[in-house]
Design a protein around this nucleic acid. Structure first.
Length: 276
DNA sequence: CTCCATGTTTAGAA
DNA sequence: CTTCTAAACATGGA
């Protein structure tokens, strides 16, 4: 069996990507005994977690379940211990049999007794690896907002009313809403037909509802496309980012790029008019 | 060689 | 208090 790489190239993991990683972990990494693990150049990603303690908690044990909050993935080790992974800007999994291709920048490899292995590849090492006792407490300590995929429409509307600033900033701030980053916040606003610099206090009920519906739609379709831009619907803006001669799927014109909330926001004026 | 992409943390300004 | 901006981190690609 060939090495199976689930992600290649330059992809920035956000909620839909991490949801896909969660499915990969569930399909390939659970209920098999880990023989040993390898940590490579992972010191700065481990934070307070002691490498030897992590080694001891994983070797000889199995992962028994998964959880996700925002961009954080948790794998249950058993008892009161979870392995927490954050994919930063360049993280992804590979899975294969021992002795096969071993990509550079693997920071954590779980070698199973059945001679397969699951590797966490993190080229820029801006992600994180940790041993966590209680995911809920971890989420509280990080001050993360509610998971974007777990909110009801009314819960989302209330959340919008509790915060200020711009829509783009709200969607990207993990403390207001957990899971979305630069790429998907743009996609949601493009699908909703609302300008990224729209202020929260100027939104009406119908606009709050439109953002919620677009958020649900974008996340569902992105996961269905396994978070690969080229497999997303033709009406998505995401595959056109940073592409030369890109044409808006609705008007044929070139999408625009502006600075918003410290990032480059892509949008199209044909359906996202300047606010006020 | 420089600049850029991105998430998160931290610092500081308004 | 909130909101916004910018730098730092790592590293390959343009």
């Amino acid at each position: 069996m060939l090495e199976e790489t689930f992600r290649k190239g330059f992809i920035v993991p956000e909620l839909p990507d991490v949801e896909v990683y969660k499915h990969q972990l569930e399909a390939n990494g659970l209920r098999k005994v880990i023989d040993h693990i390898e940590l490579r150049n992972a010191d700065r990603m481990l934070g307070d977690t002691d490498a030897e303690v992590l080694r001891g908690r994983l070797a000889g044990h199995s992962l028994t379940g998964t959880a996700r909050h925002g961009k954080y993935l948790f794998a249950r080790i058993g008892g009161n211990a979870w392995l927490m992974l954050h994919f930063g800007m360049t993280g992804y999994f590979t899975y294969g049999n021992d002795g096969e291709a071993d990509p550079r920048h693997n920071v954590l490899v779980l070698f199973y007794k059945d001679r397969s292995h699951l590797a966490f590849n993190c080229r820029r090492k801006l992600g994180a690896i940790a041993l966590v006792e209680n995911p809920e407490e971890f989420i509280r300590k990080k001050r993360l907002g509610p998971d974007a995929a777990s909110l009801s429409e009314s819960g989302f509307s209330e959340l919008l009313k509790e915060h200020g600033g711009t829509l783009k900033g709200f969607l990207m701030n993990q403390e207001s809403l957990a899971g979305l980053g630069n790429v998907y916040s743009d996609e949601i606003l493009f699908q909703a037909g609302i300008h990224p610099r729209t202020r929260l206090d100027s939104l009406g009920d119908s606009e709050r509802k439109a953002v919620y519906r677009a958020m649900q739609k974008v996340m569902r379709l992105a996961v269905e496309a396994e978070a690969e831009p080229e497999r997303m619907p033709r009406t998505f803006l995401t595959p056109l980012r940073n592409r030369r001669n890109a044409e808006c799927p609705f008007c044929g014109g070139p999408p625009k790029r502006i600075s918003a909330s410290g990032r480059h926001a892509w949008y199209c004026p044909c359906r996202q008019p300047e606010p006020r």
